[in-house]
Nucleic acid binder design. Structure first.
Lengths: 162, 162
DNA sequence: GTTAATGCAAAGCATTTGCACACGT
DNA sequence: ACGTGTGCAAATGCTTTGCATTAAC
């Protein structure tokens, strides 16, 4: 008999799953194994994956899962406030289970998206700002540049400085 | 004989065109009517258009222009520092002829992208920030929310607050 | 049992690429 | 003339949709 090692889920992941259960019940949505697997994967990683990266990661856990389901489930999570779509310069949606206000740095070379420690940035308070009627739900800083790995590999900026 | 009204180009547009001429010459690139028309269109509008919106707008001026050319020319402009690709939550590239550091507000309903007056936000100084070797070329604030038009039309937030 | 979710296949957009022809210098 | 740029058509990549089947409550 094969005994599989069960990875110890960290606090964040299990709290997230609980929150999902709560919000699904409240909204009459089913608790499917796909939703569990997708949220568990998303919330345990810090690389702001694309839908496709999550799809690749859960294949072995949920046999026969489809890409379509991953897209649909992620969209549901955004609606339920369990995840956010993050703004980035690529033409690909990236997701983050951390829905608190924080910031991202996107590498123009390898397209990695990293978190920026919020403490190094000033608080952005848009509450007093005159945005001509624009209602802000959320806001974040997106930094564009080169990550340390790419700089180390000799990649340098390919476009003109203004 | 029909006399067409020639719109008076504003300062910004003509300066931009001059800069393009300069940078194209410096880099051995040709000054084509397509490049002129695309930059003239992009720099005269404030709505951060997609490649396709520019394509639609220049059709009557440059008969037979292709979508492919618009994509290629915009990419060239980014390389030359004449335009920037802006980060937004859609899976579509949007362009801005204003390459100075400024900020954007994206409407989740109509997908309009508006400029935020830079004076209402604190200066974001990443120079002292410990970004673990990440070299920042540029950074901007992206606010996500509802524009005044959509709020007025009764659209309200469709997703959960965290 | 009912309603909602999934999987599949196909369609839909945005964007890119290869190649022959046309244009700018 | 030469090299670069353009247009076309096809390909690619990400995402969405319609519909029949399956699973959750």
């Amino acid at each position: 008999m094969i005994l599989q090692t069960m990875p110890i889920k960290d606090e964040f992941v299990s709290a997230k799953i609980k929150l999902m259960e709560e919000r699904c019940r409240k909204n009459g949505l089913s608790l499917t194994i796909q939703r569990r697997a997708i949220l568990e994967n998303l919330s345990s990683r810090k690389d702001h994956p694309t839908a496709d990266q999550i799809y690749a990661a859960i294949q072995d856990r949920v046999a026969g899962v489809s890409r379509t389901t991953v897209y649909r489930v992620l969209e549901t999570f955004v609606q339920l406030g369990l995840a956010q779509k993050i703004s980035n310069p690529e033409a690909k949606a990236r997701f983050d289970a951390d829905t608190t206000r924080h910031h991202h740095a996107a590498c123009v070379s390898c397209e990695k998206v990293l978190d920026i420690d919020p403490s190094i940035l000033p608080d952005i308070d848009l509450s007093k700002a005159d945005l001509k009627g624009f209602q802000v739900f959320d806001c974040s800083v997106v930094a564009i540049g080169l990550c340390s790995d790419c700089s180390a590999n000799g990649v340098s900026r390919s476009y003109q400085i203004n």
